[in-house]
Amino acid sequence: MAHNSDSATSNLLLLCSENSSTCFDDDGLECDAADGSNSRISHHEGGGGSELLLACFVAQSEEAVRAMVEREKEHLPRDDYLMRLRSGGLDLDLLGVRKEALDWIWKAHSYLGFGPLSFCLAVNYLDRFLSVFELPRGVSWTVQLLAVACLSIAAKMEEIKVPQSVDLQVGELKFLFEARTIQKMELLVLSTLRWKMCAITPCSFIDYFLVHLVWLNGEFGVVLEFLGNILNESLLRMNKMGI
């Protein structure tokens, strides 16, 4: 895929827009105005930076992919996480906690019609958070709050239209959290993950492999789209099963 092609380039992650600059300005008035308009315009027209998913489907150079593999290490749960999940042992029922959170994220994600990358991101945040943060034992609402916060951040990173955070709480929920509480949890997740939210997920590599597969076949376009759909689907299933 040519870098110059219009569709490829227009999908690039858009940053540093005028609005974004002004939102960091000192002036309070200007800040409020920019915040409000930015949020509305970008969420409906996708002008802000919502093209992250699509950016994922632009052809990458070998060098870029190598850098991604390197960068992926910074977006993984702590090394002992898998062992702790398997062994259970002294820990709180980590596997159970993960399953409960994942279960809700999966259902809510699908109900809200979000794309595959926001699902991958939410699970990435959940796992990274659980691997370094000790949730208080026996307080079941924390798990649910964590799941809501992870999905909320993932949606904000990725989706064009994001419902208000209270409205993310769909499905059968034991608790209903206030926006303020969700915000606090979001901040806790963000700072615990050191704001490294542009996680490298399996999605990030799909197009690289697709392009190579397609070149082998000598076909383009249709094949690419078809394979993309299949891979996305299977990726979602895999993640759902916790693979």
């Binding site: 940053l15 609005n19 974004s20 939102c23 960091f24 915040d35 930015n38 949020s39 970008s42 969420h43 802000g48 930076g49 909320s152 951040i153 904000k156 990173m157 994001v162 208000q164 955070s165 209270v166 926006a179 303020r180 969700i182 915000q183 979001e186 901040l187 963000l190 704001w195 939210m197």
Partner: peptide
């Protein structure tokens, strides 16, 4: 008040 940490701040 309703929407947590603004999306553009998280992204940027």
């Amino acid at each position: 008040a309703n929407n947590g940490v603004p999306y553009w701040i998280i992204r940027e």
